[in-house]
Amino acid sequence: MPGITREEVAHLARLARLELKPEELDHFAGQLDDIIGAVARVSEVADQDVPPTSHPLPLTNVMRADEVRPSLTPEQALSGAPAQEQQRFKVPQILGED
């Protein structure tokens, strides 16, 4: 596996919405490279014909009946909001879609 570059770290940070400082990019590039280098061993089993395990217990079909349960009150729902207006969460301008 190739080492993790500073640019890759910057890309990951963008995907993960983390505003990293230049020195953090360098720091993380080194550390992630070390960690990935150490854990990459798992790919030893990549070509083994083994089913992946996503859930530790083999449960299936856990469902609930389509019955209404009480919601929070709007006051409770908004109780942690950093800003609110008209009983809605107030957020800075959204870019992107129009």
Binding site: V45, P51, P52, P56
Partner: peptide, 14 residues
Amino acid sequence: AYYGSAQKVRTLIT
């Protein structure tokens, strides 16, 4: 290579 393999390791450990 990473997540997928890790889930396979999980099966082997089980």
